[in-house]
């Protein structure tokens, strides 16, 4: 009881601390006093630039991406009643990244700054819509996940094709960075551009969370309880599509955080999808801020991409969670 009551305040505190830590650490470590002064606008111009234009935007971007992916994962898991459902596994992230890469390849992205985010969100909505359509036809969640794997592979194949045909090394490296996932060199403007979509998606997921609890009993009982299944599906698909699309527009594909964060949170929220939603998002944010901090401060000759590190940790976790599942209702 006490643990679950302290969970959200604790995670908010952890989020603030991790964001603060991300401002302190880096190639030139700064003392807390200097960072606070810079945040308040009282420090030297160099310090101001480091905090306001480099470290804080990057940390906030990592947090926003983790929040979106953790929340979307928890909501999709509630809707599909399976702990393995996640934007990455269901092919939503890959479709969004494909659409983003598409605008880069054909040079559309250079015309206006909002074209790439819109394309990414469109790709994500298309994928969540396809999964939801498939969900109407089949009751087996395993089938849905396999459809997602197919979607993911197809997106990856098309991306490889575009990379294969890339006209010059610059567009190639742009595309690679979308595939690998990174929050390096993101500005507050980049964040502001995707924020409306991110917020809209998370709000949709938040207001439809009660139906996710009811779905614990299965779709038939849930509709008997008064859940409008069509509206419920639509809200989660739209919400997860918007939030995931916004995350991919900001950082490219970062996988598995949508599985790992909800999985860690669930035992502390009595396995209730509604009560897991906010903690899963917050934990996703904290995990990505810390992972990005690690990426930045690790003494490697070439900086690692955040998406690569997330996958290195997340993929084994995915396999472990899948192996823990008791084969029961599907």
């Amino acid at each position: 009881m006490t643990v679950s009551r302290l969970l959200v305040p604790g995670l908010v505190l952890a989020a603030v601390l991790s964001l603060g830590l991300a401002c302190l650490a880096g190639s030139t470590p700064m003392a807390p006093g200097r960072v606070l002064a810079a945040l308040a606008g009282q420090a030297s111009p160099a310090d101001q630039v480091v905090v306001w234009q480099i470290r804080l935007p990057r940390a906030l971007a990592a947090f926003a991406v983790g929040l979106a992916l953790g929340g979307s994962g928890a909501a999709l898991q509630g809707l599909l009643r399976n702990p393995l459902a996640e934007p990455g596994v269901l092919g939503v992230s890959a479709s969004a990244a494909l659409a983003a890469t598409f605008t880069l390849y054909f040079g559309f992205a250079a015309h206006a700054p909002f074209i790439l985010p819109l394309a990414a969100i469109g790709g994500a909505l298309l994928a969540t819509g396809l999964i939801a359509l498939a969900a109407l036809r089949t009751r087996s969640v395993v089938t849905l996940i396999l459809i997602g794997v197919g979607l993911s592979s197809f997106s990856a194949a098309l991306m490889s094709l575009m990379m294969n045909l890339a006209p010059n090394p610059f567009s190639l490296s742009d595309m690679v960075s979308w595939m690998l996932g990174s929050v390096a060199n993101r500005s507050l403007e980049d964040l502001a551009r995707i924020l409306p979509f991110l917020v809209a998606g998370l709000v949709l997921l938040w207001i439809s969370r009660r139906g996710l609890s009811a779905l614990t009993l299965g779709e038939e009982a849930a509709s008997g309880l008064g859940v409008d299944l069509v509206r419920q599906r639509l809200a989660v698909v739209l919400g997860a599509g918007l939030a995931t699309g916004a995350a991919v527009a900001l950082a490219g594909t970062i996988g598995f955080i949508g599985i790992v964060a909800p999985h860690l949170v669930r035992p502390l929220t009595a396995h209730d999808p509604a009560r897991s939603l906010l903690p899963a998002g917050l934990l996703g944010g904290v995990l990505l801020v810390l992972a990005d901090l690690g990426v930045r401060t690790l003494p490697t000759s070439v900086e690692l991409n955040l998406g690569v590190v997330a996958a290195l940790i997340g993929a084994p976790a995915f396999a472990w969670i899948a192996a823990q599942r008791r084969t029961g209702h599907d």
């Binding site: 009643r81 779905l215 614990t216 009982a221 309880l225 008064g226 009595a270 396995h271 509604a274 209702h329």
Partner: peptide
Amino acid sequence: YLPQSRPLAWPSRVEDLVALGRFAYGAAP
């Protein structure tokens, strides 16, 4: 309505499952 198939997606607590019966009144676990 108590349907024929009664799958449980999550290992929920008993009192939370019973609380779902109050869904139509705006309640949640």
